[in-house]
């Protein structure tokens, strides 16, 4: 993410990472989670579940921020997200690299 100005607490804020869990056979294919995911992580898949609906699938791997909006808006209790803890080191690296890019932009101006 690019910032036009560096936030004051940029080095303290850590973007949470999550993992989407989909209970496919409970899904009724309404598409609310696909429409309202703030990171556009999901799309409706071409495959059918047991009831003949198209459940969502994840296309942008690693972009889920564990906001749980899909779990809140799903009328069928078929999707939720869990926090992802394993790859903390790579997250820090990505945070550092994005911080560097912000600093570079700042020096350019």
């Amino acid at each position: 993410m690019k910032y036009w100005r560096k936030p004051l607490d940029f080095d303290q804020v850590k973007i949470p990472r999550g993992e989407v869990r989909i209970i496919a056979d409970r899904c009724k294919g309404c598409g609310f989670c696909v429409e309202y995911c703030p990171k556009d992580v999901l799309v409706l898949s071409e495959e059918f579940n047991r009831k003949g609906y198209h459940p969502p699938k994840v296309v942008k791997h690693g972009e889920c921020v564990n906001c749980n909006l899909c779990a809140m808006i799903c009328p069928d209790f078929a999707i939720y997200s869990v926090p992802l803890e394993e790859e903390a080191s790579s997250d820090q690296q990505s945070a550092v690299s994005s911080q560097q890019s912000v600093e570079e932009q700042g020096t350019d101006r």
Binding site: E19, V20, R21, I22, I23, A24, D25, R26, K28, P55, K57, V58, H61, G62, C64, N68, A71, D76, F77, Y80, V82, L84
Partner: peptide
């Protein structure tokens, strides 16, 4: 990064709303 879960597995009970619902009546 994502897991599509079989409904018969334990992940159904891991849903955050499951303590508040009678899961045997869902869907």
């Amino acid at each position: 990064m994502s897991t599509t879960v079989d409904p018969n597995q334990v992940a159904v009970d891991e849903h955050p709303v499951s303590p508040f619902l009678r899961m045997d009546r869902i869907p």
